[in-house]
Every structure is written in structure tokens, then in C-alpha cells.
Design a binder for these strands. Structure first.
Lengths: 138, 138
DNA sequence: ACACAAATGCAACTTTGTTGCAAAATAAAT
DNA sequence: ATTTATTTTGCAACAAAGTTGCATTTGTGT
């Protein structure tokens, strides 16, 4: 088991349960964004669907995961960096979705450039999703 | 009826039907992005749910509408500018989603800035969604 | 080991999206 | 203007995705 799992849960005062450990581990080892359906498959009927929904929701609320918007009604989740505060991710990194393999990555080292909005608009969050061909699918 | 409706449909060689006229009119008069559910409500049981799904799909394929990604599993649709070619919108404008009133706008005059991706990634599309407080909700 | 709190699983349900096909509406041809 | 061909619609049935309440189980702190 990945050493960061217990720590991550304890720091948020979350009970340490099998499903939470397993789901966190999935994210830590895959290093890519996962949709609810992906988790359901890879956890092999170990947990109830409802448990997965609730776990993902809790992880987002506690700042362990963040959601990645998509244009096809399939929200994905990805690990927040530790700096994230609870509730949102503030580091505004770019997401990349590969059209070929379908994998979505957080490009942690690419930051979203500033945009100049018309006067009167207050921005709280910026999400930039790039899609195309990833480095493995060239 | 808005004068552009018939023209927009004819140019794409689409049959001119009640549902298509009505749905196009909704977008033209609201000037904001609409989700499937919004359309279902505002067309008042006039059309079958299936017809709305198919109409939206057709409009996206024909370049009349484009989709706006979201992080909450509720894809929205918005009118393409006339310059759009069929299939996608190429003008890469910014989208703004207001947390207060829930309305999503296309900011047609704000373009997505270039981002420098790591070598090996080929970008075909960039989507930038800003969220916060819109000019009416300050 | 015990009591309390929290999380899970189950069942039932709602909402959302899809598919095939007959009926209806639109477009094209005569 | 009427007929024929094509396209679109509505219905029904279904599949998938997400939600809620509640009893049972699991985890936490003493």
C-alpha cells in the first residue's frame, strides 16, 4: 500500500476504510484522471456503486480530488496536489485529454495563463482543458 | 420568428421542422448557453425528449451549436458564430459560468491565450471555462 | 472491551441518455 | 397540386447514471 494513503486520510479526519484506501491507491498508482466508471471497473465489484459515489464526493469536498470538466458528460477526477485547500484546487494547472487513448492527465507544470475578462466579471476559478494527441499516442 | 432561423437551417440542408425552429429560437433570444434540461423546460412539453436530444446532436454536427464543458455533468450548448465550420468551433473563445445565477455565457471577444505544452503533446482543441460572478450578479 | 460515531450495502427510486420502428411531416418530382 | 421519396418525429422499451433512507457493519476513542 502506498505510504501516503493513511496520512492523507488522517489529516482530513476521515475514517480509514477499505474503499477509501483502495480508491486512493488507484489514483496514486495510475497518475491519471479517472471517471466513476473507471473506478467501478478497476475495483472489481469490491464495493457498492453508492460507496464509490460517496467516496468521490467526500474526497472532492476534502480537497483530495478535484474534478475535470469535459464536454461529453463524463466528469473525471484527479488527485490534488498537497497544496490544495479543501473544496477547490487553486493551482490552476492545465488538463490534457487524449482523443486517441482517452486518458486525461493533469499537466501540473503548465499553468493557465491570465485572461483579461470584460469589466464586471469576477473570476474565482479557471479551467483549461486541452485535447488532442498525447505523447504516447503520436 | 427570428429571421435567421430559416436561413441557418437551409444552409445546412436540414429540413425545417417545428422543433428545430423552436430550439434555434430559444438560443437566439436567450443569448446564453442552455443545457438539455433548460430546453425541455422552456419548450413546455411541446416535443419529445428524444427529439431534443437528436436536434442538439444534429446542430452540433452541423456547426450550429457547440458544447461547453462543465465539471458537474451538465453539458451546455451555445450558438456558434457564423464563421464556424461544421463539426467544431474554431474561434476558441472563453466561456464564463456564473456561480450565482448559473448562467453560462460565451465571451466572444475574449480569446483563449496560447499555452506552452510539454514536447510531444499535440493540441487539437482548447477549452477555457472561467467561473465566478457575472456582471449582473455583483 | 465498550460505547459512540461514521461509513457501507442494499433496495428502491429518479433522472438522464439510447435504440428500433411505425407514423407523421417535410422535401422533391411529376 | 398531387404523388412519391426522404427525413424527422414520437412512442415504447430499455440501459446507464445518480440519489436517498435506513438497517447493519465497521472504525474510533476511551
Amino acid at each position: 500500500m502506498h505510504p501516503r494513503i493513511i496520512d492523507t486520510l488522517k489529516r482530513r479526519q476521515l475514517s480509514i476504510t477499505d474503499s477509501r484506501k483502495k480508491i486512493l491507491e488507484l489514483f496514486l498508482e495510475r497518475k491519471a484522471a479517472l471517471a466513476h466508471a473507471d473506478i467501478e471497473q478497476h475495483s472489481g465489484d469490491e464495493f457498492d456503486r453508492v460507496t464509490i459515489y460517496r467516496t468521490l464526493q467526500t474526497f472532492v469536498e476534502k480537497g483530495i480530488l478535484h474534478t475535470i470538466p469535459s464536454a461529453d458528460n463524463s466528469v473525471k477526477y484527479a488527485l490534488c496536489k498537497d497544496a490544495c485547500t479543501e473544496g477547490h484546487h487553486h493551482d490552476n494547472h492545465v488538463h490534457f485529454m487524449c482523443d486517441a487513448c482517452g486518458i486525461t492527465y493533469c499537466l501540473d507544470h503548465v499553468t493557465v495563463p491570465a485572461v483579461q475578462l470584460p469589466p464586471g466579471y469576477q473570476v474565482h476559478q479557471l479551467d483549461l482543458v486541452a485535447s488532442g494527441t498525447c505523447i504516447k499516442c503520436q
